[in-house]
């Protein structure tokens, strides 16, 4: 029974309850970091770490957090993990940290993290909350990686900084802001029309 529930949560977050293209959460970072696959990957690792552990912590403390100040407590818990990610990145991957700029700190206000803590972790046990946080992060990750591959490939002719074609005319628009909006819109459209038609 419990295993089934966990599996349902896990698959739901990857597919039909996906945070990015179904709930339209965490869009800011989705668009901002996806112009290079490597940065996206690092950002996603940070987010998975944050959602999984903040979900667990919130769930562990759920009987001790007073109802009226729960938002601020949740934000503080999330902030602790985000700061850990920030410090680790700055210490070991300085170049990536500089390219990601303020977006690492902005994981705090990423609606996915807050939303999962608020909607799921406050009602469920720690193990399930961790699974939920982890799978939300994974759901976010696979969407971002696809968008990042498309944008980097067309925008720079590379994937993970490796050249695919020698002679490639860069579609500069793809690595700039409008390209991000278009790719995301097309992605949501494709997913919507193929996989979740019954929800429309």
């Amino acid at each position: 029974m419990k295993n089934n529930r966990g599996l349902a949560v896990f698959l739901g977050n990857l597919g039909k309850d996906n945070p990015v293209f179904v709930q339209i959460l965490g869009i800011c970072s989705t668009l901002a970091v996806t112009n290079s696959v490597r940065n996206t990957f690092v950002m996603c690792l940070g987010l998975i770490f944050t959602t999984a552990l903040s979900g667990t912590t919130v769930s562990l403390l759920r009987f001790y957090i007073p109802q009226r100040i729960r938002m601020i407590v949740t934000v503080l818990i999330i902030a602790v993990y985000v700061i850990i990610v920030d410090i680790v990145l700055k210490a070991w991957y300085h170049e990536i940290a500089r390219e990601l700029g303020p977006y690492v700190g902005l994981i705090i206000t990423n609606c996915i993290v807050m939303g999962r803590a608020e909607a799921f972790a406050l009602q469920n046990n720690p193990l399930l909350s961790m699974l939920d946080g982890f799978s939300s992060g994974m759901g976010y990750t696979w969407v971002l990686l696809i968008i990042a591959v498309i944008r980097e490939f067309f925008g720079a002719g590379t994937v993970w900084n490796i050249k695919i074609f020698d002679a490639w005319t860069n579609w500069t628009i793809m690595i700039m802001a409008p390209g991000a909006f278009f790719v995301l819109a097309l992605f949501i459209w494709i997913v919507k029309s193929f996989f979740i038609r019954e929800k429309l």
């Binding site: 293209f21 339209i24 802001a177 409008p178 390209g179 991000a180 909006f181 278009f182 995301l184 819109a185 097309l186 949501i188 459209w189 919507k192």
Partner: peptide, 12 residues
């Protein structure tokens, strides 16, 4: 959402 993003892309 998709049409909102397309419009946002054009504005952008």
């Amino acid at each position: 959402a998709p049409i909102a993003f397309i419009s946002a892309g054009l504005v952008s």
